[in-house]
Amino acid sequence: MVSYSKLALFLIPVVVLFLLDVNSAFAQESSKQYMSARIEIWALFYRLMVVAFVIGAVVMGTITWVVWRFRESHPKNKGSITPSRSEGAHH
C-alpha cells in the first residue's frame, strides 16, 4: 500500500504546477499581463538553465575527482582496499 502521506507529498508539486499553468494560460486575456508572463517564464527558464549548468559542471568536476581519488594507485587506496568480486566481497 502506498501511504497517503507519500501520495500527498507527490500531489503538492503537481497541483502547484497545475495552478501556475492555469494562471499563465489565462494570461493571454490581457496583453500586458501576457507580455509580462512571457518575460517572467523565460527569465525563470534562463535562471534554471544556469543553475542546471552549474550543477552539471560540479558533477563533471566530481567525476574527475572520483576517478583521481579512487584510482587503484592512489596512496590512500593502498591500505584498506575494496575487495573485488573474486576476492569475495560480494557475489
Binding site: 567525476i63 576517478v67 582496499i81 575494496t82
Partner: peptide, 23 residues
Amino acid sequence: IFNWIATMWGGRIKFAAPMAFTV
C-alpha cells in the same frame, strides 16, 4: 550519470584504456 558516479565512489578504479574512454 549519478549511477555511474555512485558506482565509482569508494571503488578501486583501474584507469586502463576501456575505463579512460568511458569516463
